[in-house]
C-alpha cells in the first residue's frame, strides 16, 4: 500500500496519553514497587493498514496490545475506537464492541481450550457475542471460516492436541475472524512456529486482510517479520515510543538511535551481506522497567547520549513524512552520520 493511500485512511483507533503501571509486591513488609510498563503512548491506527509494534522484551508491546483491547485496564489515557473511548465503556458495552476488536496469541496451543472441539472453539466468540445467530447459521459460518484459513471441514470435531502448532494457529485465526472484526491485534503470532510454517501463516494473514478488509496491529520482536507485514512501524523501548515511521523509511533511514541499533542487530539471511557488516552493536541489555533511567530511557545504551538526555524526557516530535521521533539529538546524529 502506498503512503498516499494510507494518508487518506481515517483513524480507526486513537491511543492518547496511555499509561500503565503494575505494582509488584516484594515482601509483606515493604512497600510494593511500581513498574511502569507504558507511558505517554500516543498513536493512531488507520483503517486498512497494518501497524507493526516492535521492541525487545519488557518494552511493553504485549501490554499495549492488551490495553487496546481493554484486556488490561490502562491507568491513564484514552483508547478511542471510531471516536468512542473504550476505557469509559462499561463491561456490557465493551463486550459488544469485542466483535470489532479481536486478538491472536503467540502460543497457539495454550490459547485453545483442550476440552473443546475445533468447531466449538471457533464458534465460541459468536455464541457469546451474537446469541441472536441460530445454531445452523453458526455452524455454516464456522465451516466458511475454516475454509478461509485452510482447515479441512472434517477437522471440525477434532480436539486441539491433535493439531500441530501451525494448524493450531489457523484455528486461533479462525476464532478471531468469526465475529467479522475490523481490527485484529496479532501478538507474536508466528514466533512459536517453524520457519516454513511461519511463512504460511504470514501469507495467510495478508490474504485474509485483503479478503476481509482488516486492519492489523502486529506485535513482534522479529524485525524481519515486522517489516514484511507492516505499513507503518512503532518502535517501543522500555515503555515509551522511540519512533513511529512508515516501514520503508524506518528500514532504509532510521532516525532514532535505537531504531538504528535494532536494524543493525537484525540477522540477515545472506552470508555476504552478513559478513560485510562490521557492527559496532549496542552494549549491555535493556535496563529494568522498575527503575528506568531518567530522561531518555535509551540513554544508558545510546552512543550519542549527552547531558540533556539524562535531564529531560525527549518529546515525540513530528518530523516530515509522517514520522515521529523521540530523540533530543536526532538532527545532530543525522548530520554526523551523513557528514562524516
Amino acid at each position: 500500500m502506498s503512503a498516499v493511500e494510507m494518508d487518506t485512511g481515517i483513524p480507526l483507533l486513537e491511543v492518547e496519553n496511555l499509561k500503565k503501571t503494575f505494582s509488584i509486591a516484594t515482601s509483606l513488609l515493604r512497600k510494593p514497587l511500581t513498574l511502569t510498563a507504558l507511558e505517554d503512548i500516543n498513536f493512531t491506527v488507520r483503517a486498512g493498514e497494518t501497524l507493526g509494534i516492535v521492541g525487545e522484551s519488557g518494552c511493553g508491546k504485549s501490554t499495549l496490545g492488551r490495553c487496546i483491547l481493554q484486556l488490561i485496564e490502562p491507568d491513564e489515557g484514552k483508547v478511542l475506537w471510531l471516536g468512542e473511548d473504550l476505557t469509559k465503556l462499561g463491561s456490557e458495552k465493551m463486550r459488544k464492541r469485542r466483535q470489532d476488536l479481536q486478538i491472536i496469541f503467540q502460543d497457539p496451543l495454550a490459547s485453545l481450550n483442550p476440552r473443546m472441539t475445533v468447531g466449538e472453539i471457533i464458534a465460541d466468540p459468536l455464541r457469546t457475542l451474537r446469541p441472536d445467530i441460530s445454531k445452523t447459521e453458526r455452524r455454516a459460518r464456522v465451516l466458511r471460516m475454516m475454509e478461509a484459513v485452510g482447515l479441512l471441514p472434517e477437522m471440525i470435531n477434532r480436539y486441539p492436541h491433535e493439531f500441530s502448532g501451525g494448524q493450531a494457529q489457523r484455528i486461533g485465526i479462525a476464532r478471531a475472524l468469526i465475529t467479522e472484526p475490523k481490527l485484529i491485534v496479532c501478538d507474536e503470532p508466528v514466533s512459536a512456529l517453524d520457519v516454513s510454517i511461519q511463512a504460511q501463516i504470514l501469507n495467510l494473514l495478508s490474504e485474509l486482510k485483503e479478503e476481509f478488509g482488516l486492519t492489523l496491529v502486529f506485535i513482534s520482536h522479529d524485525l524481519s517479520v515486522v517489516r514484511h507485514v507492516s505499513d507503518r512501524i512503532l518502535v517501543l523501548y522500555l515503555g515509551r515510543i522511540a519512533e513511529l515511521s512508515p516501514g520503508h523509511e524506518l528500514y532504509t533511514d532510521p532516525k532514532h538511535p535505537y531504531s538504528q541499533a535494532l536494524l543493525l542487530a537484525a540477522p540477515i539471511p545472506d552470508p555476504k551481506t552478513a559478513r560485510a557488516r562490521t557492527l559496532e552493536g549496542l552494549k549491555g541489555e535493556v535496563p529494568s522497567p522498575i527503575n528506568p533511567p531518567s530522561g531518555c530511557r535509551f540513554r544508558t545504551r545510546c552512543p550519542y547520549a549527552k547531558e540533556i538526555c539524562a535531564d529531560q524526557v525527549p518529546p515525540l516530535e513530528d518530523i516530515e513524512g509522517g514520522r515521529l521521533v523521540a530523540c533530543h539529538r536526532w538532527r545532530e546524529i543525522e548530520a554526523e552520520l551523513t557528514g562524516g
Binding site: S164, S196, A199, Q200, L223, S224, Y251, P269, D270
Partner: peptide
Amino acid sequence: LGLLSSTPNPAERAKRLTPIEGLP
C-alpha cells in the same frame, strides 16, 4: 530452497514469502 524462500529478510521487503506447503 524452501527454507530460504520462507525466511523474510529485513533488508528487503518481498511481496510474498514462498512457504513450503504442507507440514513437517
